[in-house]
Each structure stands twice: as structure tokens, then as C-alpha cells.
């Protein structure tokens, strides 16, 4: 299965003092992370907080202005090694509208050097699981937003990556498909894959995340298990949900205890 190294031997994702500057604008200000293998990390933050920038840095798609990051011990700048270890589902599904879902997945499997028999088995299984089998021969251009999202999710996990970066994976999905994705996330984590999950849908994070990090104005202002964050938020309020915790740490108040 995914992890090619023993869990606990080294962090699946490790970032040290990551900074990213766009011109005069500081998008990311000294973010440090250390995620063990097989965990689900819920990455929260308001719009423009720097979540996508962080994911692009950790997948090697953007170079940091300062600091360094490793995925399973591989520096993110080493793309030849990195590509086999990460799967990335960006917010806009990177699909080719001229292809059918089957063609798209075959293509990605080929580029991932997955042997044809294995690729066929996996693709068939995923198409069934996400109820795409009947439409697999249709061009992606004719798909609904949810079908595109499901196809893009499948292509990001086809090679059983060690670390899976998901940017709003359940956005635009119907409840059944969203539940499938949630179940898949926990299944992957159980099998040793580390899932880095960025979303605004807080119930999803509450349901699947082992650890939550909250990014605000480019800084990681809170981090810990969801229950801890909600407990801290509840200390000074009547309710105790992750939403309250999120609003507390991103509303300009003092960072929640334990946050950075």
C-alpha cells in the first residue's frame, strides 16, 4: 500500500519556517509543520490566508522565498522523487474536457508508470466506488461539476501516494458523493497515507481530521486535535464547535492557547 517507509520513522510532511512573498505582499509568514504518516491534517483558514500557497509549496509547484519543506524526507525541490510520493487535487480540477473519464485516468496511470493491469483494476474499482462507471466513456466536457470533482479525486489517488493534498475535495458534491470522499480519506489514512485536507466545510474536518491547523494572514495561529481546539474555544463561550474555534482564532482575537 502507499507508504513505502515505516510510519513514525520520519514526518510525512515537514516544513520549517516557510515564507512566501509575492512582490511586497507576504503570503506566508514562517509556517512550520510536522505531520506524521497516516494522519489527516485539516487545514483551515479564511479566504486569502495562504492555504493554497502552502499546498503549492508543499507539492513543489511554487518555490518558497525562505524556509524548506520535505515530503517523506524528500526535499520538495527534488521533483523527480517528489512526484511519486504526492497526489494533489487542486480547487479547480485539472482535467481535459476532450477526454472521457476513462481516457483521462488511463492517461494519468500511464504517466504514473502504473502497470496496465494494476491500472485497469484500480480505475474500475474507483469508477464503481464513485458511481462514474456508466459515464466513463463520455467526454469530461459534458460532466457535471460533481462528476468532474470525483474524476479529479480519483486521478489524484490512482498511484496510492504517500501524501495526499486535497483542496476543497467535497466542494460541489452531492451528499452521497461527499460522504464517499470522506470515507475514502479515512480509508487512505488507515492504510498509511497522510492526507492534507484544506476545506471550508468544517463538519468534514471535524469528521475526519486527526489534527487541525488554522492559517490566518499567512501564519499558523492554532494547531491541535479538533477536540482540543473546540475545548479552548468553549472556555470563554457557550458553544463548543470547531466553527467557534475557527472564528475565535481568525477573528482578530488573541490566538488560541497552544497556537503559534
Amino acid at each position: 500500500m502507499p507508504s513505502t517507509h515505516s510510519p513514525g520513522a520520519q514526518p510525512a510532511v515537514e516544513a520549517t519556517d516557510l515564507r512566501k512573498r509575492y512582490g511586497d505582499e507576504l503570503a506566508l509568514d514562517g509556517v512550520s509543520l510536522s505531520l506524521p504518516s497516516g494522519t489527516v491534517y485539516g487545514f483551515l483558514g479564511p479566504n486569502g490566508a495562504g492555504k493554497t500557497t502552502t499546498m503549492r509549496l508543499l507539492t513543489g509547484l511554487t518555490k518558497p522565498t525562505d524556509g524548506e519543506a520535505r515530503v517523506c524526507g524528500t526535499p520538495v525541490a527534488d521533483r523527480r522523487e517528489l512526484v511519486s510520493q504526492v497526489g494533489y487535487l487542486p480547487e479547480t480540477p485539472p482535467l481535459y474536457e476532450e477526454f472521457s473519464a476513462r481516457e483521462q485516468l488511463d492517461y494519468v496511470a500511464d504517466l504514473r508508470d502504473i502497470p496496465p493491469e494494476t491500472a485497469d483494476e484500480r480505475i474500475d474499482a474507483y469508477l464503481d466506488r464513485f458511481e462514474l462507471r456508466e459515464d466513463a466513456a463520455k467526454r469530461i466536457g459534458s460532466y457535471s461539476k460533481g462528476m468532474k470533482r470525483k474524476t479529479a479525486f480519483v486521478q489524484s489517488v490512482l498511484h496510492d501516494p504517500d501524501v495526499l493534498f486535497l483542496d476543497e475535495p467535497t466542494s460541489g458534491l452531492d451528499p452521497r458523493a461527499a460522504r464517499r470522499i470522506r470515507e475514502s480519506i479515512t480509508d487512505f489514512a488507515d492504510d498509511g497515507t497522510t492526507v492534507f485536507l484544506s476545506t471550508h466545510i468544517l463538519p468534514v474536518v471535524e469528521a475526519v481530521a486527526d489534527t487541525v491547523g488554522v492559517l490566518f494572514e499567512g501564519r499558523l495561529v492554532a494547531e491541535g486535535p479538533p477536540a482540543d481546539l473546540t475545548d479552548r474555544a468553549a472556555a470563554g463561550a457557550e458553544s463548543e464547535t470547531l466553527e467557534d474555534a475557527f472564528l475565535a482564532v481568525t477573528g482578530g482575537d488573541d490566538p488560541v492557547e497552544g497556537g503559534e
Partner: peptide
């Protein structure tokens, strides 16, 4: 390149 995030996290840029 279209679907840039896919290709650049799948193969080497030279490819």
C-alpha cells in the same frame, strides 16, 4: 500547459 497542476505533480518538467 493545460492541467498544469496535474502534469507538474505527475512527471518531470522535462517530459
Amino acid at each position: 500547459v493545460d492541467a498544469e497542476e496535474l502534469l507538474l505533480t505527475t512527471v518531470h518538467p522535462r517530459a
